[in-house]
Design a protein around this nucleic acid. Structure first.
Lengths: 373, 373
DNA sequence: TTGTAGGCGTTATCAA
DNA sequence: TTGATAACGCCTACAA
């Protein structure tokens, strides 16, 4: 008998049982069930997978026994032999960022539908840490990885090649054969927001960005510049400020803008969190939004419609983008297991449309405020 | 040779290689490394674990080879033999709830410090689904589970007994030997908030709760009632309304309160999201906060200090609570592996203090508004 | 200090 | 329809 425990399964702890309170008794294994049902373990395996090649009666009997004994097949053991874990890794800067948590929700939703588990890892926007967590995910043999707002960029390529795990990036991209992505139309978004401000008569418009060095920020800044250029307004470097994507830093940056000799009458923010800080800084100086300064955000987080005034912003379908990333990843994963060349020539880069939502934080420029310094 | 692949490791795919683009070549295994280093695989295992029982030179050589070949030990295989996965399961109602994401952050932080991975699962506040995801976590052989805002309550007990996995609940508790918890002092929190309103002269104070049936809500309602009773104010059932913990539902509920013949001059909300909706509803009727109606929240989410007016609320150290839950779980897990009776008589129920943060959304009651209907 | 042997709990591949 | 038997990749004795 090559059995591991010779019969002292959870159910029947005979032998040397002294008075051990609650022996950390193993969960029942497939062999325990097999013994109870008087069949071989492969049969149990088949029965539990509803294989047609097993007698209906014995299958029912087996399932009953398994049920009664609280048997739960070990995904660990299964993963070892099947070579896939039904697990994906998700790397976000930090989940307490509303953008990340919305995307995460979309991902989890689709993953869960397919009975995949999601391992969550925070990179804290630290490239080094990001690399480390990706490595750890690889050790855990995740079937795929999604990374949002990556900071690593080019550093990925060699790692990816090595990992041989499909990866999808959200709101970042890297021009390589291994990297697929889902991105919002950043440039279109801020261009639309800036055009809207221009239409309202603003000429002195600031851009309050993110110093994190994200591709998103570069693109949004570009969209802002495009709109200015199209309207014949010179880009004023002193009007391009930087926060870190969170309200606190935005306050400082906005305050500095307001202290400029010829301060802006409108500000196009990198995202809604930044806009939150900008609005606060504006009010702190006794100015009003939008009468004195108009503000636009980006993301359309849940609170945007609840602020006073409500926030004009560029909507990003975050949850949907998460879903798309996950669906995309599933495609890649199935393509890979089916022995296909892992989508070398089918790099998918999905671009999602951005939508300007006009609300109360933007208004007409004051007449008396000029257009040149 | 009992080797699995007879030498055709990732490095040397000889034999029948036709023109297969990129053979899904296995990641190198410990045996591959052993062969390359001309030692046995246990030696490799030891070297990689920095075991002192291996010659320093050979260890170095082995590590170099492992490094060069991109070897990453399989956590799956390791988990199978060590019987623990260095993985914990986290069940939240939904990660896009700011409270949940803050808690999640704290958990992930501590887990990551210990090189544990976190599997994220959303219950969507559905007891059935909650049970299902917990089962799945068990199949994946997580070493522990944390559940926030559980809806299952009593249903857990039998399941837990069966699972034999340590569990920690956040903001819910169940009086059983298997369930440990970290909770905020709900009752103290709303009592303090309500007392604050009473001190401001309010007598007609509403409570805007959560119909989800959470223990938190019951406790917060109790705290509100306590404060009223202490001040000799009768509890008016018509002033106890219910939302669902999100702004939209709160708008409706608040609006109904405002339509009461003798409407409230202040409202104590279940949480900040609810307060967000309440404030909007108040404004929608042309009333002002706090001049006409004062509002208090609960949680102190990031946006509370950025609203206009800023929100008076009960602070809950969410991230810290997540950390505590995780630290607690680690204690339970180590106690278990060390062969202890899994903490039967050491059920830990941590109660965290709530702190009232007074800001701008609460003000003195108007003189002309009476105190009885 | 190193190697041999065995087992962790599954699924897969054969025969029977 | 079922049962032996062999992996999967690692770790842990125990032996050398």
């Amino acid at each position: 008998m090559s059995d591991n425990d010779g019969g002292k399964a959870a159910a029947v702890p005979h032998a040397g049982m002294k008075h051990v309170p609650r022996q950390a008794s193993r969960q029942p294994s497939i062999k325990d069930i097999a013994r109870l049902a008087r069949v071989s373990h492969p049969t149990v395996s088949r029965a539990l997978q509803n294989s047609p090649l097993v007698n209906a009666e014995t299958a029912a009997k087996i399932r009953k026994i398994a049920e009664d004994s609280g048997y739960r097949a070990s995904a660990v053991a299964r993963g070892l032999v099947t070579r896939h874990t039904r697990t994906i890794g998700l790397v976000v800067t930090t989940v307490d960022d509303p953008f990340a948590s919305e995307v995460t929700c979309g991902i989890e939703e689709i993953a869960n539908d397919h009975r995949y588990a999601v391992i969550l890892a925070n990179s804290h926007a630290d490239p080094e840490r990001e690399r480390r967590v990706v490595q750890e995910l690889a050790e855990r043999r995740v079937d795929g990885i999604i990374v949002t707002s990556s900071r690593v960029g080019a550093l990925y390529l060699p790692l990816l090649k090595e990992l041989e795990v499909p990866i999808v990036l959200v709101n970042d991209q890297y021009p390589g054969e291994f990297v697929h992505s889902v991105m919002i139309a950043n440039r279109d978004g801020t261009r639309a927001a800036t055009e809207h401000l221009i239409e309202l008569g603003h000429r002195r418009i600031a851009y309050l960005g993110d110093r994190g060095g994200y591709q998103s920020d570069a693109e949004r800044l570009a969209g802002y510049k495009e709109a200015l250029a199209a309207a014949g307004i010179d880009f004023a470097p002193e009007l391009a400020a930087e926060g870190d994507g969170r309200p606190e830093a935005a306050i400082e940056a906005m305050d500095a803008l307001l202290q400029l000799h010829h301060s802006p009458t409108a500000v196009c923010c990198y995202n809604d969190m930044t806009a939150l800080g900008a609005m606060r800084a504006i009010r702190a100086r006794g100015l009003r939004v939008p009468e004195d300064v108009s503000v636009t955000g980006f993301d359309d987080l849940f609170f945007a419609a609840y602020l006073t005034p409500t926030l004009t912003t560029v909507r990003q379908p975050m949850r949907r983008m998460g879903q798309m990333a996950m669906e995309n990843l599933f495609k890649l994963m199935s393509g890979q297991t089916s022995g296909q060349a892992s989508g070398q020539d089918s790099v998918v880069q999905i671009k999602v449309a951005a939508e300007l939502i006009v609300r109360g934080s933007t208004g007409k420029a004051q007449k008396h405020e000029g257009n040149h310094a």
